[in-house]
Nucleic acid binder design. Structure first.
Lengths: 202, 202
DNA sequence: GTCTATATGGTGATAGAC
DNA sequence: GTCTATCACCATATAGAC
């Protein structure tokens, strides 16, 4: 996507910033901390980027791209809609570290900046939209009840994941996340159409 | 709870800190910002509290107490379990401001401090436990299917709320929160026992 | 491209006057 | 109890040498 135009120093700065944004958020991450961990001087940063915000934007964009790719890979797999949703919910996660994208929504300076918020918004919107597609397929095939609203349910699924991080981090125990996912999957498993599949309209 | 031992200056400091923690989190809130907004000098703060962490702890405790009281009030109301769960999910919220308790779980310095994390953990645990009680009553009365696990479902419900804040703040639109709640309520409405209520074991 | 100065203002706390 | 003065250090950025 960037071709070969990016220097390795530039790349190091972005990767280090991604780490620190994940660990400490935007407000909690100083340029000095980034430079120290990246082993790079101050001049390099201000050569490649206009400042902290610009560097953070590059980092957030890259994190968002990676997450969208991961979600697409999981949801593009074949099989029943329920299985693909379950694969999304049950995928391996560093639960106690939280979501590297979602956590940024709690950062006041991220929300105050259109440039920083946009990639966060786009990433979450993408995940919701892809889940809604899968759910729509499931409704259409009769796997899920016809009255369920895919867009609403997609929001519920993403929210359960994002909120699961909150529960796990509050208690310091990943099981709080897992419990939320189990509860949701139990509800989804009971949500099939109770009659035969809806007739195809293709 | 505090009797009359708290001075009005002390109280002002706590209230102002609660506001700022809600808006900007712990890392993003400086003593100076608190003092400026409270209209209080630095000496007062260090007279009543040992420092930023101590003041924040008092603020977080108070916010947690308030939230537990609100949840108890909603869940102690009579009526079917589903209605009480719905009341919790649909209660008025300042959605775009996020959850004053949950947001603290994304703050690295809060998680790093046992004193600061404890009231957050206790509050969220309380909400989960109370929801689990209501769900258990619903299962027992046959309102919900017997195979549903109240503790798991309680985690799902709290997670949907906490994650709903994330979705709403990412998009800048409260409807993302509402969509998640609608999706969850639709699933819960379809989760009754399919046979007659479980026989009472009282 | 990368480095080291340097600058301005904020952070979190202490000291001591009133 | 509350205030102001002061402190050492950090945050973010600019300037300019190499």
């Amino acid at each position: 996507m960037y071709g070969d135009v990016m220097s390795s120093t530039q790349d190091r700065l972005i990767e280090t910033t991604r780490e620190l944004l994940w660990e400490r958020g935007y407000v909690g991450t100083s340029p000095k901390a980034i430079l120290r961990r990246a082993g790079v001087g101050q001049g390099s940063m201000y050569h490649h980027f206009t400042g902290k915000g610009d560097l953070a934007q590059a980092a957030i964009r890259r994190t968002g791209e990676e997450m969208r790719a991961t979600v697409d890979r999981l949801l593009d797999a074949g099989g029943p809609a329920y299985e693909r949703i379950a694969a999304y919910l049950l995928r391996e996660r560093d639960v106690l570290r939280g979501c590297p994208v979602g956590r940024l929504t709690m950062d006041p300076d991220v929300l105050a900046s259109e440039e920083l918020r946009a990639p966060v918004d786009e990433t979450i919107a993408h995940v919701k939209a892809r889940l809604a597609e899968v759910l729509q397929e499931g409704v259409h095939s009769g796997e899920f009840a016809a009255h369920l609203v895919p867009r609403d349910l997609a929001a519920t699924i993403v929210a359960t994941v994002q909120g699961g991080y909150v529960l796990a981090r509050a208690s310091g125990d990943t099981d709080a996340f897992d419990a939320g996912v189990r509860g949701l999957l139990a509800l989804l498993a009971r949500a099939p159409a109770r009659t035969s599949p809806a007739p195809s309209t293709d």
